[in-house]
Write a protein that binds this DNA or RNA. Structure first.
Lengths: 178, 178
DNA sequence: TATTGTTATACTCTATAACTATA
DNA sequence: TATAGTTATAGAGTATAACAATA
């Protein structure tokens, strides 16, 4: 299911206006949602999903020494990673073995099946990226550079501790009006 | 917390290779994540979040006749929308009144406080979008058009029924190894 | 019978905090 | 004490299915 604000016209407020068709944030969001759903479908065809793909990719790159680093690469907490790894282990795609030199450390390895699954997802990701790249065409460099600038300004805005979400449902029970 | 694959080098498989720095899908995803977090922070400053903002925006545009249409606009199911509306009603931002001409239909209205909250979020969204737009600068048209092409190719790939996610955790419980 | 919306329930993903084992 | 990872628990967001009210 996809949201679609972009054809819903303009709202004005004081001197400001907000037009769906021209709202960059909204368009970026919706485009990424659409692209993401398509990618999730491709991954699903090879029994994957984004979370698994990210973890396997980080594993495949062997760019981590500890699970803590792996979690940071994937962008989740250690506890969340443990859940995913438990699932992957039960599925028979990875093994966890304690490192003999420091038995606190888990050494993560693909099984043969896990390696095959990883390669299927990698192939899917490569195919998908070719599709996207050809869609952008000759504007590719411009597009990458615009994305990079967007990430920069957002990062400037986005540093500091994460504020708690406005938790509607939690404070809902307290002072509910009749 | 943010994932960061883009500086993690290249994986090769057969004749294909996958390079984080050049992976368009990954870059698009990460950029949107960063931008989204920044936007959520801005909304949080005015007691909002993305779900609430989308719902209030659709309400403000009065572009729906039924909750079903509203849910479709926002991109969620009716049941999910009901939960959000219940929360918004408890918070005192919207009212639900049965339509006298068809008592199955709920008429949704902002309260005064809800209108004010909506306007705060709208102002935040407009400010945020100006920030993004100025970051993209003169490449804006090119950028929009690239996004549009990406959405198109993804939509072509993305039609059809949503496949179930590969539910790792569900089939995990069955044959768990000791 | 069809439509509008709600309720009941469950599932995924995620996080925080407390914990175990090891150093 | 400090570190690596796990477990227990919880919560936000979502969905499906069964339901009630109304047409």
């Amino acid at each position: 299911m996809s949201n679609d604000f972009s054809s819903k016209g303009t709202i004005t407020l004081g001197g400001m206006s907000f037009t769906g068709e021209r709202a960059l944030g909204m368009t970026l969001w919706e485009t990424t949602q659409v692209v993401n759903r398509a990618f999730e479908r491709m991954l699903a065809e090879v029994d994957g999903n984004r979370a698994v793909w990210f973890i396997l990719l980080a594993l495949g790159r062997r760019s981590h020494a500890t699970q803590r680093e792996l979690a940071a690469t994937v962008g989740i907490t250690e506890a969340t990673l443990t859940h995913h790894l438990t699932a992957l282990e039960r599925r028979g795609w990875v093994t966890r073995t304690r490192d003999d030199r420091d038995r606190r450390v888990q050494r993560l390895e693909f099984t043969v099946e896990g390696q095959a699954a990883f390669e299927r997802m990698l192939a899917a990701a490569i195919r998908f990226d070719r599709l996207l790249t050809s869609a952008v065409g000759e504007d590719l460099d411009t597009f990458f550079s615009a994305l990079s600038r967007l990430a920069s300004v957002a990062d400037d805005r986005g540093e500091g501790p994460l504020p708690p979400l406005a938790e509607l449902r939690r404070d809902a029970g307290d002072d509910a009006p009749a």
